[in-house]
């Protein structure tokens, strides 16, 4: 365990999270090393999103513990959570983009939270938009974009703060094969720059085409 603490950036240890309907995860153990790419593969309802939510500290385990960076669910305080989340990038399954702001401001918000200067915000946002190939859509509202473009904006927002851990929930779920492949290459590029990536997906066939450790989840149990 001590070795794990030293080598992993994030981990779940014998975690139990149960919803009111009895679903959830049981004895879930998973560690993600710095710079590692991990696929969390399982069918719908297996508990993938629950694992991700536990890692970005939206759900609190009733048993076991979760650790992300310096945060430890048994020892850290609730008020530390926002600061831990600043080192995490999250690509939500439903994107969760701000529809009353344009693409630029969606990304800028994350940097506003970090207290960056206007100049720094502009520099970083434009760079990340260029990385995901969306510079030309900077002043568009999310609802004016296609599903694939929205997914890329969601990814851009997740990486604009240069996170150490990127959590992506079915980032290719609703995309055509070509756009899904583009998205995968973006995720791998982010991983190559040093960020750990945990990608939840139900598509094992697609996973086989890319490099990364594969972890399976079924009925709330993690294996592999």
């Amino acid at each position: 365990m001590k070795d794990e603490l030293n080598t992993s950036y994030a981990e779940l240890h014998k975690v139990r999270v149960t919803y009111a309907n009895g679903d959830g995860v049981e004895q879930a153990t998973l560690s993600i090393a710095p710079g590692e790419f991990v696929f969390l593969v399982g069918p719908s309802g297996a508990g993938k999103t629950t694992v991700l939510k536990t890692l970005y500290l939206e759900l609190r385990p009733s048993e076991g513990h979760v650790r992300v960076g310096s945060y430890h669910s048994l020892f850290s305080k609730t008020r530390d959570i926002p600061y831990v989340r600043r080192s995490i990038g999250i690509v939500f399954q439903d994107f969760r983009l701000f529809t009353d702001r344009d693409v630029f401001d969606n990304l800028a918000f994350v940097l506003e939270v970090l207290g960056k200067s206007r100049k720094e915000i502009k520099r970083r946002v434009l760079r990340v938009l260029a990385d995901v190939g969306l510079s030309h859509l900077a002043r568009k509202r999310p609802q004016e974009l296609s599903g694939g473009e929205q997914q890329r904006v969601a990814l851009a927002r997740a990486i604009v703060n240069e996170p150490r851990l990127l959590l992506a929930d079915e980032p290719t779920g609703n995309l055509d094969p070509e756009t899904a492949d583009y998205m995968m290459r973006l995720l791998q590029r982010i991983n190559e720059r040093g960020a750990s990536v945990l990608m939840a997906t139900h598509n094992y066939e697609m996973v086989k085409r890319y490099q990364g450790r594969v972890v399976f989840i079924r009925n709330g149990q993690i294996s592999g």
């Binding site: 970005y56 939206e58 926002p82 600061y83 831990v84 989340r85 600043r86 995490i88 999250i90 939500f92 969760r96 701000f98 009353d100 918000f109 994350v110 939270v113 970090l114 927002r157 703060n161």
Partner: peptide
């Protein structure tokens, strides 16, 4: 509500 939840998830503090 959803927007505020998202703000929290990207690291916004309560005071922010």
């Amino acid at each position: 509500k959803e927007r505020i939840d998202t703000m929290r998830l990207v690291g916004a503090t309560a005071s922010f």
